[in-house]
Design a protein around this nucleic acid. Structure first.
Lengths: 334, 334
DNA sequence: ACAAAAAATGGTAGCGCTGCCAAAAAAACC
DNA sequence: GGTTTTTTTGGCAGCGCTACCATTTTTTGT
């Protein structure tokens, strides 16, 4: 029995050249539509390409010409919709520009990030896209030495290596606090997830506290749910927080997933929102606009971050930081 | 002003060999830990690697050895959490086996899929992973000729090219209908999204209708929301469906996103669930377990699909179809 | 101590393509 | 008609690495 599911040798450019009765470089020129060739030659080559079912080998092409047109994404998670959103924005731009997206998932672990960046660099990508600015020394050193473009996304509070695209999480945290204060809330709690791993959530938290402090206030209580953010974590987190601090009048969540969980908790327990308890999230997920009461939150430019980063990379733009800002959505839960 | 953000020449294996005072092949053997070499040589090589900051060039390595260890995902969408889930499962396995994930997004367009598959094949991937069995003739031809492994995911109703991993959407649709019938619902409606594009949702719909028919029943009404599935689409869809068919006692949604929208509509309008209207979804998203009433739905093996497909590919397993099944979650909305 | 076996190492021919250069063919000019 | 230009074309040297083979060094056996 033949193992016919295994690899078969592929057609090469030399075979196409032979079949078309022209030189290899001519085939190469025709296929890349680069340099000059006659109409007649073009047809002959294309006919052979069709007939043989030739698929160019980009591995070889890249090696010969340098410039892989590969863009590497090293992202913390795929569960948190934020990162698929970034990938979505970027992938549209990259595909339109004949670039190819490659990715790995770090699980918010800087050591893992370092290992994955090393693996990525082996592909000699055009650019490496990372989340935020917090990386190990090893990661930074490799990236600097690599000579490839680096884009750090979804953060602006820190020092960029090369390109940075996103918004200030600290400012978002501040804006959230100022909004709640403006609305008259004073006994404000926080429900978050693992802040050591998610440094951007930590920056929002810090900005939030900073703005509270500036107004002479402070967090009245805090509950950290172990593990990554999730709707369930938000629900449990709020339940625990309220058990300890029953008289809160508002809660700031580390993101919309968590906030939705909190909202569901209120719905289930019959806690009137926002009259008895106001809720405020972060991210501006679509789902938050369709809940019985739209979620009060901050909409972040996730897809745009991917798009802009990809555009800068394909255009080989000079190093820069692009602030895409954020938008406060008043909603109805605060 | 120097454009120092541009590419700088990278260290090559030959330079490392020179610096370590050994031959190129020795360096190659040490780095891949393949073949034999003395402890002393190993240390000398590693020292040089460290000192020069050498990063192997996998483009060259792949060309020389064949076998790119690249796995290509051509997926319909990144907005629908289903696909990030599959990627997540697969990426963990691939990373553990020194493989690299590459992806492109088709937007549910078969023509685009064909173009993207062609682009992917140029990278000579170890395998190409696709959603479902519905592909253009061109896509099928290319994949067959490519000699690389092909895995068709999240569907089992059709003829596989090579590997297939997932569950039967038709059976899931049937199981959903049987459950609702068992619960005594008879005036059942359907709210879905673009079924021409999402052929797996279409198969669930067909299975659902089939089971209704087998019980002498039929869909009492149907509302199709234009565009991809979304929570908002579900909410609007249910609203429109109820406007036309006010006396339904249950609604089947094309997936959980849509069902959540429907649930929010009921919450907002004060429609008692499930006493006045039962709701049933598909996918078993985490969020559906945390809503005030857990969503009645079918949990699909999304992460496992990615995992198993990746495992089969790295193990170079023979062609086969793997049924990962699905699990009906009774929930509280039906 | 000498032969035989095993381990360690280096040289080099490609992998399939692109870039450069020179040669050939076609077009344009006086 | 005989150049001078311009357009097409083919040849071939790498890109950086791995696979294979030959050679050298070390270990083992008697």
């Amino acid at each position: 029995m033949t193992l016919d599911y295994r690899h078969q040798p592929a057609v090469t450019l030399a075979e196409v050249a032979q079949a078309a009765g022209v030189g290899e470089s001519t085939v190469s020129r025709v296929l890349r539509n680069h340099g000059s060739f006659s109409r007649k030659t073009r047809d002959r080559v294309m006919e052979a390409v069709e007939r043989l079912g030739y698929v160019p080998n980009r591995i070889a092409g890249t090696l010969a010409s340098a410039g892989s047109r590969l863009v590497a994404f090293v992202i913390p998670s795929l569960s948190n919709i934020v990162f698929p959103d970034v990938l979505r924005g970027a992938s549209a731009v990259l595909e339109a520009n004949q670039h190819q997206a490659v990715f790995s998932v770090t699980d918010y672990d800087p050591e893992r990030e370092e290992a994955l960046v090393a693996a990525m660099l082996a592909w000699r990508p055009t650019a490496v896209m990372l989340a935020g600015f917090e990386h190990t020394q090893g990661t930074l050193k490799m990236l600097r030495a690599s000579g490839c473009r680096v884009a750090e996304l979804l953060d602006l509070d820190g020092t960029a290596l090369d390109l940075a695209v996103g918004f200030s999480n600290r400012a978002a945290g501040r804006a959230s606090a100022e909004f709640l204060l403006r609305r008259g809330y004073r006994r404000i709690g926080y429900v978050g997830h693992d802040l050591d791993r998610d440094t951007r959530a930590a920056k929002r938290h810090d900005g939030f506290c900073e703005a509270l402090g500036a107004a002479g206030a402070a967090l009245a209580g805090r509950e950290i749910h172990a593990g990554p953010s999730s709707v369930e974590g938000g629900r449990l987190g709020l339940e625990r927080l309220l058990a300890r601090y029953p008289d809160l009048d508002a809660v700031y969540f580390s993101n919309d997933d968590m906030a939705l969980g909190g909202y569901f908790h209120c719905l289930a327990r019959g806690i009137p929102v926002p009259s008895a308890l106001a809720l405020f999230g972060h991210n501006g997920l679509d789902i938050g606009r369709v809940t019985p009461q739209p979620l009060s939150t901050i909409r972040t430019p996730r897809v745009a971050t991917g798009q802009v980063a990809a555009e800068l990379v394909v255009a080989d733009a000079p190093p820069q930081a692009v602030d895409l800002g954020f938008e406060l959505i008043e909603g109805a839960t605060a």
